[in-house]
């Protein structure tokens, strides 16, 4: 009750480790939960690696996850993009597990920090650019100039395409970050309000039922958002990977 709605996003410095270019790298609660997330993902999938002809429950979950991401990559980009499938797989499950871990009380939501979402988004876009130029040479820049337009239109279209390309990492980062922050702030506000009503005592404590029901609803919604945002990030990664393979038909 004493903490404000933003308190939950505070990064607790546990130990300073070393310095890179004058910046201190520390072990923090965020680092701890990133490690937890990766350990849980790897542990989960090691449990699914049975390799049986007739899969059990765990193996089925692993195979369904594989098919889910493989179909996503195949349907959005094409079979030639399967070499990026591990990256999309890692993005999806890293964000999914981080979001879901963040739903637990006392856990820290690593994806609620702009530093993390921006790093993921910028790395994704840079990867698309590097792979695109590596594969298509300078012809890759044709993605900014869709073919088959009258010449004067390019004066308008090319700046628009460049702006839309540059806004991709921004939207990718902000969408995930804002969704996570908004959900957790809302949850905290409802919970604080419930505690506040209860602390008032008397007849107002009966009204606590409203924020509690609201909190329950938001918890359900936040689980949906946690999965949905992971899916959105993964599928947008696939959509952007399209620019690596299909420069012509933009």
């Amino acid at each position: 009750m004493a903490s404000g709605p933003m308190e939950q996003f505070k990064i607790e410095r546990e130990a300073d480790l070393f310095e890179i270019a004058g910046q201190t790298v520390s072990w923090t609660n965020s680092s701890f939960w990133m490690v937890v997330s990766v350990v849980l993902i790897i542990g989960f999938f090691i449990l699914t690696m049975r390799g049986k002809l007739i899969p059990g429950r765990m193996q089925s979950m692993g195979e369904l996850s594989y098919e889910f991401i493989a179909d996503m990559v195949r349907d959005t980009v094409g079979p030639e993009a399967m070499r990026f499938m591990p990256y999309v797989f890692a993005i999806f499950f890293f964000i999914l597990f981080s979001n879901l871990i963040g739903m637990n009380p006392y856990a820290f939501t690593t994806t609620s920090h702009l530093a993390v979402t921006a790093a993921l988004a910028i790395f994704t876009i840079l990867m698309v650019m590097v792979a695109g130029i590596f594969k298509n040479g300078l012809g890759w820049f044709k993605i900014f100039a869709p073919s088959g337009l009258p010449l004067p239109m390019y004066l308008i279209i090319i700046p628009i395409e460049i702006i839309s390309f540059l806004s991709r990492p921004v939207t990718l980062a902000v969408r995930l970050f804002a969704n996570m922050v908004a959900g957790h702030v809302l949850l905290k506000l409802f919970a604080i309000f419930a505690a506040f009503l209860l602390a008032k005592g008397g007849i107002t404590s009966v009204g606590v039922i409203l924020p509690v029901v609201g909190t329950l609803g938001i918890v359900a919604l936040e689980f949906l958002v946690a999965a949905l945002q992971a899916f959105v990030f993964a599928i947008l990664t696939c959509v952007y990977l399209n620019d690596v393979y299909h420069v012509g038909h933009h």
Binding site: V25, I42, G51, P86, A90, F93, F94, T110, H113
Partner: peptide
């Protein structure tokens, strides 16, 4: 001031995850 730490740990953990997935888990599946 927290960004360096966050990005460092993100890069490290994500790299470990990517390596484990692309080398062991996904080929097995």
């Amino acid at each position: 001031s927290t960004w360096t730490s966050q990005i460092f740990w993100l890069a490290l953990t994500f790299a470990v995850l990517y390596f484990a997935l692309s080398r062991f888990i996904l080929p097995n599946l």
